[in-house]
């Protein structure tokens, strides 16, 4: 019996090994959100990111880092303020009677630099050189001077993994800034799509899309993109909106983590997907 097994193994060892390794890979994919696996990943990318940051530093040795970073930070802060003012203007027109409208938002930004990028049409993510030591936490939004870039999914002491809008796993609650129509934005491998919006809802090409107040993981009113296309399905009842993002993921180097103070009450709700 043992001989038969031995002969079988020797004859088909390549197939047995490849099957075994593929099964291990598949089971690891399904275990990605497991706490133990997350710990290993955080530890590993934290270590490797240190090496990346050194090589990335060599690449940028001629750049005037401080000045550029300062200006980009200022630009990003202004972008957030301009967008907020735009929103206030629209709301003001609608709700003139609310004279005591509260100024609620003044986000603190933590500047960071992208040290490595995973170039893929479906798995877009970055490693950035800010981490827990910079008061950065999992779930914090990442912006640049143009708008939303993504969110932090793992944070080690000095580095963090950012899941970008170009990652098919990321789903965000967004809203049309003009008409306040809400929807879920996701990456379909080619474009950002807001799926299954009733066709009779007021959405026009060129409308600005921002993060929604209903989002439990992002602060409201961060610019995401503009509607570039409307695709109505065969029945004509539902529409998919194609969104052109403001940010260019391929060209960016510097980002900012927005120190978003999450609501404790929202955090306690079962629906918060990033709840620990």
């Amino acid at each position: 019996m043992q001989k038969i097994f031995r002969r079988f193994f020797l004859e088909y060892k390549e197939y047995i090994v490849v099957t075994l390794l593929l099964v291990i890979s598949i089971s690891l994919i399904s275990q990605n959100e497991n706490t133990q696996i997350k710990k290993v990943r955080t530890l590993a990318f934290g270590g490797f990111a240190l090496v990346h940051s050194i090589s990335s530093g060599i690449r940028d040795v001629f750049a005037n880092k401080d000045e550029i970073e300062e200006l980009k930070k200022l630009n990003a802060e202004l972008m957030l303020k301009v967008n907020l003012l735009r929103e206030y203007g629209l709301e003001n027109r609608e709700l003139k009677e609310l004279l005591n409208f509260r100024d609620t938002t003044n986000y603190e930004l933590v500047p960071g630099k992208i040290i490595s990028k995973l170039v893929s049409k479906t798995h877009g993510n970055f490693i950035v050189n800010i981490g827990i030591s910079d008061s950065v936490k999992t779930g914090m939004p990442i912006v640049n001077s143009d708008g939303l870039v993504g969110i932090i999914t793992d944070a080690s002491e000095n580095f963090s993994v950012v899941r970008t809008l170009g990652n098919s796993v990321l789903n965000l609650a967004v809203t049309n800034q003009r008409s306040n129509v809400n929807g879920i934005l996701s990456w379909n491998g080619n474009a950002l799509i807001i799926k299954n919006i009733p066709s009779n809802f007021d959405n026009e090409i060129g409308d600005r899309i921002v993060t929604s107040e209903f989002s439990t993981i992002l602060p409201p009113s961060i610019p995401v993109g503009v509607i570039s296309e409307k695709e109505t399905n065969i029945a004509g009842v539902l529409t998919n909106l194609v969104v052109q993002p403001f940010t260019d993921f391929t060209a960016m180097k510097n980002i900012f983590a927005v120190k978003f103070i999450e609501s404790e009450q929202i955090n306690e709700l079962e629906l918060n997907l990033l709840k620990k």
Binding site: I24, S25, I26, I29, R41, F45, A49, L118, H123, V161
Partner: peptide, 17 residues
């Protein structure tokens, strides 16, 4: 997968194949 911070198992699967 560990270095890139990507989905653990995805590059393992594709590169094994």
């Amino acid at each position: 997968d560990l270095m890139s911070g990507g989905l653990l198992g995805s590059a393992m699967f594709s590169k094994t194949l």
